[in-house]
Nucleic acid binder design. Structure first.
Lengths: 198, 198
DNA sequence: TGTACATCAGTGAACGCGCGTTCACTGATGTAC
DNA sequence: TGTACATCAGTGAACGCGCGTTCACTGATGTAC
């Protein structure tokens, strides 16, 4: 067993992910450079390719981490509390908004990466997304007990997409420059009306 | 007056926009190349820079055109008809969806371009957006006559963003692969509930 | 109308730069005896 | 324990490529006389 070597390798792997994350968080995914990263991590450019097949693979590792953090942030926003389903949806959406606002560039990287390469979306990505959907479908099923599962599923994706869209354009400073509390209001406005029984 | 020269210049300008549009429509904004374009337009690379300051300027010209087409498509979807305000919102949204579906890459270019350069968003862009917002605010004011203008404005942006989000993730084949009629259903579902009086 | 000159669009080879990735080499760690 | 050898992570200069943009030159069009 190459214990010392393996240890160093794992340490380098962790360092690379950490530094890459910092770069993406401050400059954006498209500004990630092998040379910068090597300097940050205190290794040579070649060493990066010893741990990761290419830079894309490293970026995916960062995304996996970001997605997990996003997932636990959203889950934590309502965990352990007894909240009516309508409010739970609002609280989760606000947690999503705040995560996106605090880690804007990391959050954007989640959606930018797949676009570029024509690689298949990895399974952990879809699994993570399913987990988010489940959190939405739960409250919806409580609010609309008579809806078919298909309709719940449709509404789930519709609400996720709608909230995502509001957050996306709301945080697009260049276009709208909407203050955070107004974005919250927009989300609440849409959700309140959507989930109010007719 | 350099009439002949001016004529050729305008012709070249038109050709370049047309060919650039075709390239973007088929391969995406990020695949636009000066050399390809010159070949398509039957001119030299240098000639491009005689008409446009740089490729970005040309891409902006394509975007301006796309935005105008999008605007008239949405406007045409309900023009000349007498339609209740609720249905008008749905019809406009569906027109938006179909435009995005038919001209996906041109539509994406609308949102991708600003991201890259830190140039200010041009005024025609914001003006076009305002026009779209006005089309949404109108029906909303009819549906909710007692709402303050601020609330109408908020809801307008919220609905636009929500529909945009649904179209965006719905057309993201890689993630969801949602059939077109299901996207329509999602839009209708959200709009119907949002605009139904409580 | 014809000739000389000026202008400026058009040309495309060449410049310059950025950057992902490689690869021949070095040196530390681990193994065999 | 000590010595010789093997392995493989680590190095960073160099490769290779793509591509936006430039620029010295050409030639067509327009102007002056």
């Amino acid at each position: 067993m190459a214990s010392k070597a393996e240890e160093r390798r794992n340490a380098l792997r962790a360092t690379l992910i950490e530094k890459a994350e910092a770069r993406i968080a401050s400059d954006g995914l498209d500004q990630l450079r092998a040379r910068d990263l090597a300097k940050d991590a205190g290794c040579s450019v070649g060493a990066i390719y010893n741990v990761f097949g290419d830079l894309n693979e490293l970026a995916m590792a960062v995304n996996a981490r970001t997605f997990q953090r996003l997932g636990s942030t959203v889950t934590a926003s309502f965990a352990g509390k007894t909240i009516p389903p309508r409010d739970r949806l609002v609280i989760m959406s606000h947690a999503y908004l705040h995560f996106a606002e605090e880690h804007t560039l990391l959050w954007r990287a989640l959606f930018d990466l797949k676009m570029s390469s024509d690689m298949a979306v990895p399974q952990w990505y879809l699994a993570e997304l399913q987990a988010v959907f489940a959190h939405i479908a739960g409250p919806l099923a409580e609010i609309f007990p008579d809806w078919q599962p298909e309709k719940i599923g449709l509404m789930t994706r519709a609400l996720f997409s709608a909230v995502h869209g509001i957050v996306l354009l709301g945080l697009e400073k260049r276009i709208s420059a909407v203050p955070l509390d107004q974005i919250e209001s927009m989300i609440a406005l849409v959700l309140a009306n959507v989930t109010s029984s007719k």
